[in-house]
Design a protein around this nucleic acid. Structure first.
Lengths: 166, 166
DNA sequence: CTTGGAAAGTCAACAAGGCTGACGTAACTT
DNA sequence: AAGTTACGTCAGCCTTGTTGACTTTCCAAG
């Protein structure tokens, strides 16, 4: 069933074949997406989980642990393991909240900022190259489809972050 | 440096801010992308690794273990563990090569095809919804950017698969 | 025919990074 | 005073990745 015609290029009626290509594009592209930071982190004592924590602390300085938990979608035990090493190594600073002293507000130290820059430089370079190669229209479409693929909850997170910058 | 102007919408000169949004879009969208199959697999004895193996065996029936290794980018030991359970459970059949009897050619059994369909139905449904919501132009751009983000090696794999269907 | 090397499989050990469950403490809320 | 929230932590488990070493099978070159 849903046999496509003779390999047509029309994107209007979505064949399983076209959807499968989209699925594989996501798979292979995500590999590229993580490859550069992974390469940098390999050899350090850190991994992708540390990268994610650093990224989101950087983009929302002063965020609480709970906040980060929701964004990353992992358990506190899992995050804690990662966070502890980052704090111990002096990349992340954990400040007791002023209003609510139960909360810990997370910030990158200068050392943390340095690693963040290294990692995001690499990732941005690839993204920039892809954007340039594809052109502005493609970029628009890229973001539109990705946004439509997110779970509503994640989309909310994404958009909050998107607007919410300082 | 690279300070953006007043939150402009121009995609022509790529600010770090715009690139960061692209990076986070990839992160959150990939979560959505894997969420449905993960949900299905949760409770079975299988995980994402099994899904990937099943997917690529389905799309290239008769592929060899080595071939699969290259596509998935893992070690043979890692793949073997996954493959063995799938073979033992009767989802995958491993046939000794006719030309080269060292090779094993992998096929899904009817039971394997059943699970494949279940998984890809879920994943395609999300992809279809996203495509529909975004429109044909966006889809074009989506695929263009993803392709530009792949490592050359992965891109080759992707395109080989893309054209190479039976 | 023998031998070298490729392809495949297997065993063992280990690490990262998820998870659950249980427990403790401090601080805020009612 | 009691309950809830935020955080940290201990212990143990699972999946999926890794290396290294070794065997079996088989093709192909000498």
């Amino acid at each position: 069933m849903t046999e496509p015609g003779p390999g047509g290029e029309s994107l209007l009626f979505l064949t399983d074949e076209q959807l499968r290509k989209g699925i594989e594009a996501m798979f292979f592209a995500y590999r590229g997406f993580t490859a550069d930071p992974d390469r940098i982190l390999d050899g350090m004592d850190y991994g992708r989980a540390h990268h994610r924590a650093i990224h989101f602390i950087h983009r929302s300085p002063g965020t609480t642990v709970n906040n980060l938990l929701n964004i990353l979608g992992v358990t506190k035990q899992s995050l804690n393991r990662v966070l502890r090493t980052l704090i111990d190594d002096g990349l992340v600073e954990s400040r007791v909240g002023k209003q609510d002293k139960r909360e810990r507000h997370l910030h990158l130290t200068s050392k943390g900022l340095e690693l963040e820059r290294q990692l995001s430089d690499a990732q941005r370079a690839r993204m920039r190259a892809a954007y340039r190669a594809a052109g502005p229209q493609a970029v628009q479409g890229f973001r539109t489809v990705l946004e439509a693929m997110m779970d509503p909850e994640m989309k909310r997170q994404y958009q909050t972050l998107k607007e919410g910058g300082a």
